[in-house]
């Protein structure tokens, strides 16, 4: 309900006290449009060493149950390039 609230919503329709009832709903806010550089994942070079995913400020590198990383989630990636810099195998290219 509160996700429909925007700058034009009258105060009567806002939640009392500015409460947010849904946990972690920032996921609905896509920050991918901030990106000016785009990381490209080269899976053939990747050794699954695990250096890139914890450093992502956006949590935009999904890790599956088999403990393997997957391709980027471009909905959120802001293109900071931290992951590309830490990769010792050049498996992430910024373009």
């Amino acid at each position: 309900m509160q996700n429909k609230i925007d700058a034009n919503t009258p105060w009567e329709e806002m939640t009392p006290g500015g409460d947010i009832y849904e946990a972690g709903n920032a996921k609905e806010f896509k920050t991918g449009s901030w990106r000016s550089m785009k990381p490209k994942y080269l899976s053939e070079k990747c050794t699954q060493c695990g250096l890139c995913f914890p450093v992502c400020p956006e949590d935009a590198i999904p890790v599956n149950k088999e403990q393997k990383r997957e391709d980027f989630n471009y909905d959120y990636c802001k293109g900071c390039g931290v992951c590309a810099k830490v990769c010792p195998f050049h498996a992430i290219e910024m373009e």
Binding site: K27, T31, P57, N73, K78, G79, C80
Partner: peptide, 16 residues
Amino acid sequence: RFTSGHRMCAGCGAPP
């Protein structure tokens, strides 16, 4: 427990 979609700057050291 700290999801994507926050508005910290790109490359900020705090979210990780």
